[in-house]
Simulated scan of single mutants.
Amino acid sequence: MKTIFVDGYNVINSWGELKKIKNGINLESAREKLIEILIDYSEFKGYKIFLVFDGHLIQGNFGEKTKVTKNLIVVYTKEAETADSFIEKYVNRIGRKYEVCVVTSDNLEQQIVFQRGSTRMSSIEFYNEVINVKVKISSKAQKIASEKKYNRIEDRLDTSIYEKLDKIRKNDKNS
């Protein structure tokens, strides 16, 4: 299974829609929207995603990991630990054993994780990937909805023939 580490604030500040939410409403709403987007993406692709947010400036913060779905884990780093250092530590452990990708537009971070056996993707490249998956999900949902028509005779017959048969049926009831 492919594992993706996403630098949460880097993505929020790179994606227009999320940046607008952050600036217009609040940061929490932008985080929640990103989580919703990644739930759909991770379920469709079958990837395990660690969405990592910096918590390093919050005094007394012990960090937090929350398993949102079987494939999405949201991490708030502890005091004095950046999202970059959290990601580097995990990539260092698993980067050469498993297929790992890191999503960040931080050039230095991209170089470091690449040296540790991971692939890298910029936030904008990831945005395009997510949009493509969203289109595929929508297309698949439409296909399922169109195939899910009831197996009724009126769905398969020409309207005039159905009306004639219905008239015959009603006349039989009156007899």
Rank of each mutant, 00 (worst) to 15 (best):
G60W: 12
A141Q: 14
E163I: 05
F114E: 11
V52F: 03
V11L: 11
T3I: 15
I25R: 06
K134V: 06
K89R: 15
D84A: 05
S122E: 02
S123W: 10
I25C: 01
K2C: 01
G63T: 09
Y127P: 00
Y9Q: 10
Y41M: 03
K148F: 07
T159C: 00
V6Y: 09
G24Y: 04
K149F: 05
K173G: 07
R120N: 03
T104V: 05
T66R: 14
A83Y: 04
D155N: 15
K33E: 14
I168L: 13
E88L: 04
G46H: 14
T119D: 11
K170V: 02
S122L: 01
I137P: 09
K19A: 06
N71F: 13
S42Q: 07
K89N: 12
R116D: 02
V91P: 01
Q59R: 15
K22Q: 11
F114G: 15
C101T: 15
K97G: 00
S105L: 05
E125P: 03
H56C: 02
K143V: 00
E129P: 00
G8K: 08
S139W: 04
R120I: 06
K170P: 02
D158L: 08
A83V: 05
S146H: 08
K2H: 06
Y41P: 11
Q110D: 01
R31L: 04
G63Q: 10
T82I: 03
Y162T: 05
F5P: 00
F5A: 02
D166V: 00
I58E: 12
I12H: 06
R152I: 04
Y9A: 05
E154S: 08
I87A: 02
I39W: 06
N132E: 15
K140F: 05
A83L: 02
S42C: 10
R156G: 07
S123C: 10
C101Y: 12
V11Y: 07
L27C: 08
V68Q: 09
N92T: 12
G46A: 14
K136E: 15
N171A: 13
R169A: 11
